[in-house]
């Protein structure tokens, strides 16, 4: 039953990808921007936990919400400072994309200056016994990852589909001018979207640090890129797509590690991106949208 174990481990890893992919897909859905600085929000989340728990010695129940709130504000700040003017003036997509890369470089270098370039060890965040299910034994981190990510997704679905601001997000992403004509302050909706996406990235950071207890300023690069692949895989702009893409990518990675080759996993992941872009550019759950003229 090794196979079953690899699937579960893959879902544990995929939980992290899925949470990060949600941030990419929500921001893309609403402003059509691939926010390449999104991966670095995970890094910010990791360092905040490190700062609060290791440097200041404060307890975890304080570090977790503080890190989530700080990440949400960082996301809003990035949108306000770096993207808002470009969005309001309808700048070319390529300008937005380059700005996002600039923000990413800025965040990484800022944290390198403050905390140094060497990796930092994280204390175990949530200690738990391995989870036993009959003859199976599952790592506690895997179980925590899956449970937390599922709770987050249920919460996000309720937020988007049942609340006024969530419905305003759907309206704004479909037709922002019409949303404005309904009296929706679309700038505020966009800001809120960045906050939620970044808060989910902070949760992903917690799970990541709990699973791989080490942080460094560049940690968001590969993780962010893989989550981006997950979002494209599921269909960028689609919230269920990002979740599905994240879990699938985790499972594929885990199975590749087990049965193909450990060194080839990243090649397989990005190979998948290339195949999707060739075969089904809209992703598994993505809709082919017609460009309006």
């Amino acid at each position: 039953m090794d196979f079953f174990n690899h699937i579960i481990n893959g879902l544990g890893l995929g939980s992290i990808y899925a949470l990060v992919a949600l941030g990419y897909t929500m921001v893309y859905g609403i402003v059509k921007l691939i926010n390449f600085a999104h991966g670095d929000i995970i890094m910010v989340g990791g360092y905040m936990v490190y700062l609060i728990m290791v440097k200041w010695g404060l307890p975890i129940w304080l570090a977790v919400p503080a890190s989530i709130v700080i990440c949400a504000f960082t996301g809003m700040l990035v949108e306000r400072v770096a993207y808002r003017r470009l969005l309001v003036h309808n700048a070319a997509r390529i300008s937005l994309l380059i700005t996002a890369m600039g923000v990413s470089i800025f965040l990484q270098n800022a944290f390198m200056l403050i905390f140094g370039t060497d990796p930092k060890l994280m204390p175990p965040l949530f200690q738990a016994e391995p989870f036993k299910l009959g003859s199976f034994e599952l790592a506690s981190t895997t179980v925590i990852n899956i449970v937390v990510s599922v709770i987050m997704m249920i919460g996000l679905n309720l937020l988007v589909n049942k609340t006024k601001i969530g419905k305003a997000m759907i309206a704004t992403s479909e037709d922002s001018s019409a949303a404005k004509l309904m009296g929706i302050n679309t700038n505020r909706v966009i800001s809120f979207t960045f906050a939620i996406g970044s808060a989910l990235a902070a949760v992903a950071a917690l799970l990541y640090c709990n699973t791989y207890p080490q942080i460094k300023p560049s940690m968001g690069n590969l993780l962010g890129l893989k989550a981006f692949v997950a979002a494209v895989f599921g269909g960028i702009g689609s919230i269920p797509g990002a979740m599905l893409g994240g879990y699938l990518l985790g499972v594929i990675e885990s199975l590749t590690k087990a049965y193909v080759s450990t060194t080839l996993t990243d090649a397989v992941v990005f190979g998948i991106l290339i195949i999707i872009l060739l075969v089904k550019p809209a992703g598994i759950l993505g809709k082919n949208r017609k460009e309006k003229v």
């Binding site: 759907i170 309206a171 019409a178 004509l181 309904m182």
Partner: peptide, 23 residues
Amino acid sequence: EPHRIVKLGLAQVPEGRRVFSNL
């Protein structure tokens, strides 16, 4: 800004209806 104008009591039914098809 548009949302403030709506709040003052001036609403628009835009050309082409522009209903939110996903809601």
